[in-house]
Simulated scan of single mutants.
Amino acid sequence: MKKVVLSLFFLSFSFLFAQSKISVAIPPLQFIVEKIAKNHIFADSLFTENYFEDYPSKSHIRRLSYAPIYLSLNLKREKSYINDLNAISHIKIIDVTKGIKKFDNNPYLWMDPLNFRKITLNVYDEIIKLDSKNKKLYEANLNKFLKDIDGIFLSIKEQLFSLSSYNFYTFDDYWDYYAKRFRLNFYKRDKKTLTAKEISNTINFTRENGIKYFLIDPTDSKKVVDFFVKNSEAKPLVNNIFEKNWQANIFIFTQKIYDMYK
């Protein structure tokens, strides 16, 4: 009888623990959950901030599987791990990009504050489904966070719409939604060394279009970056869109752009 009681106790405890946890794709989603739920729900991320060089272990996947839901952004690198989660658990996979218009199959939606706002609302919907008894608390936290997001959007808009130039080089498409929202012009360049003719053309293009900087990810090859710096007359601006603190990251990123082109 004691064994039965103990078994029921631990099953109940495990159930409660599972209900107080959410698994997510990347740290910015973890940030949203923590902003809304505070310490009431624990958020665990599949990837770290070092997204492109991170390979989650089997034990980490197992730990993620204990949550009742997994919040997905439909990133390419998620797919195989989601298959692993489905193979070992009944975790529910939730797409938190619903209602957001995507273009060119680009999944990096969250660097646009208005997209991030929609993602936040989608995350909130899942949180209150999971824990409706704390809805009032979560709603109050949500409203405060939405005000912060709206304030950031207006601040960025004010800063970037007064720049002396709106032109940048970039190697990747991580900032495309940010550029589209705030009317920046990004000129894509391949991650390779340039021929003598390409160097000459690039320098002329840089001067004609008033390009001072190019955006890079922390994982970009130092050799390629250094070569481009020497042969384009543009300076690098590093940004990692996978940083957990979305709020600080986008604010600092914008401030650097503003300081460069004001």
Rank of each mutant, 00 (worst) to 15 (best):
K2F: 06
K3C: 02
K3I: 10
V4A: 08
V5P: 00
L6T: 02
S7T: 09
L8G: 00
S12P: 00
S12M: 14
S12D: 05
S14F: 15
S14R: 10
L16D: 06
S20A: 14
K21F: 04
I22H: 10
P28V: 12
P28G: 13
L29K: 02
V33D: 11
E34P: 01
K38T: 11
K38W: 04
F42E: 15
A43C: 07
S45K: 10
F47G: 04
E49C: 05
D54P: 04
P56F: 06
P56Q: 09
L64V: 05
L64C: 08
Y70F: 12
L71M: 13
S72W: 05
L73N: 08
N74H: 08
N74R: 12
R77T: 02
S80H: 01
I82R: 01
A87K: 15
S89Y: 05
I91M: 07
I93A: 04
I94Q: 07
I94T: 02
T97H: 02
G99T: 08
G99W: 11
I100V: 07
K101Y: 02
K101E: 14
F103N: 02
N105D: 12
N105S: 11
L109S: 09
W110A: 09
W110Q: 11
M111A: 03
D112P: 05
P113F: 03
N115F: 06
F116A: 05
F116I: 02
F116M: 06
T120H: 12
L121H: 11
V123E: 03
I127K: 11
K129R: 12
D131G: 08
S132F: 09
N134Q: 14
L137G: 01
Y138P: 07
A140M: 10
A140K: 15
N141I: 09
N143T: 00
K144Y: 10
F145S: 05
L146K: 07
I149Q: 04
G151E: 14
Q159S: 10
F161P: 00
S164D: 14
S165E: 00
Y166I: 08
F168G: 01
F168N: 03
W175K: 08
W175T: 13
W175I: 13
D176P: 01
D176L: 11
Y178P: 07
A179P: 10
R181S: 07
R181P: 08
F182Q: 00
L184W: 09
K192V: 07
K192L: 05
A196V: 13
K197L: 15
I199F: 07
T202N: 13
I203V: 15
F205T: 12
F205M: 12
T206V: 09
I211C: 06
D217E: 15
V224M: 06
V224E: 08
F228N: 05
V229G: 06
N231S: 04
S232G: 03
A234S: 13
E243I: 09
W246K: 13
N249Y: 04
I250N: 05
I250V: 13
F251D: 04
F253G: 02
T254S: 14
K256E: 14
I257P: 04
Y258H: 13
D259N: 14
Y261E: 15
